[in-house]
Amino acid sequence: MTTAPTPENVLTDHHDGDHHDGDHHDVHPIRKTAMWVFLGSECVFFGAMIATFFLYRTEFGDGPTAEEIFNIPFTSASSFVLLMSSLTMVLAHNAFDHKDLRKARVWLAATALLGATFLSGQIFEFVEFVHEGLTVHSSPFGSAFYMLTSFHGAHVLIGVILLATMFVLSLSGRLYADRGLNIELVGLYWHFVDIVWIVIFTIVYLLQV
C-alpha cells in the first residue's frame, strides 16, 4: 500500500482516477483501501452500540430478563447459518477468480439465501420476544438489545440486496471486477458483517445467560 508506484503503472493503470483494470486488481487496491477504511469506521459504529448494551445489560426494569427470554439453541443455529454464508462467499469469490461464472452464480445465490435465512430467524426471534414482553419501551436493556441486533440485521439485509443484485447481473454476464459493485468488495463487507455477529452473539447472548 505504501510502496511508491512506478511511472509505468501509474500511467497505464491508475492515472484516470477511480478506474483500474480488472486484471490487475491487486496492483493499486484503491477501492479495497477505501473499503477497509469504511469497515474501520463500522467497527466504531458497532463498538458504540456494544458499549451502550454493556451499560444497560442488567437494566431490565419491569420487562423480562435476558435469561428469561433468550433461546440459545435457536440463536446458535441461526448464527451457524450466517457463518456458513461466509464460506459460500469465499467459494463464490474463488469461482469468480477462476472465471467460472456459473459456479460463482450458484455460490452467490447460496450466500444470499443463507443471509435471508438468518434474517428470517431474527424476525422470528423478535416476534417471540415481543410476545414475551421485551419491547423497545420495556427497559433500557430492550432498547439497547433491539437497536444493536436490528442495526446488524440491516447490514445483513443490505448485504443480501447487494448479493442478489450481483446474482441478477451475473445472469447477463455483467459481473466485472472493475466496477464499484464487485465481488471482492461485497465479500469483504459480508465477512465483516459475519465477524461482528460473532462478537454480538458472544456479548449479547452467551455472556448474558
Binding site: G61, V136, H137, S139, S143, Y146, M147
Partner: peptide
C-alpha cells in the same frame, strides 16, 4: 432520535437510562 420518535429509553433517567 429513537428516544424522541419511538419511545426507547436510552436517555430516560426515570426508567434506568443514563
Amino acid at each position: 432520535f429513537l428516544d424522541r420518535n419511538l419511545g426507547t429509553l436510552f436517555y430516560a433517567a426515570e426508567a434506568g437510562g443514563d
